[in-house]
Amino acid sequence: MSKLLQLVAATELARYRWTVGWRALLASVGGFLIANLSVPMLVLFADEQRALTTYSATLFSFVVWLLVIMTVFSMSKTLHATLLVLGALLLMSAVVLLEQGGLLL
């Protein structure tokens, strides 16, 4: 019985650690990419002074990264955090790709 409990506890702990590791990956790599992608996204709204908007957006991108990290670790379900980050990444890349292909606007 106690052996079984130990095993359960061990897998529980292992599971928890994997979750933490996965979220750390989402927050660091995912957050980094989202922060970088936020720059061309914001520049989409700039009619003129593109360089200045790029600069300002880059200054702001650290805040974006910060928000992603905090969001990933505050969501109760890991699956939700995963979907959110991957979804945002997909959407943002699609917009940037379309824009660069001249298909948007």
Partner: peptide, 12 residues
């Protein structure tokens, strides 16, 4: 800035 967000300018 540009070393820490290395993709920001290239992506734009």
């Amino acid at each position: 800035l540009y070393s820490y967000m290395p993709l920001a300018v290239p992506l734009t």
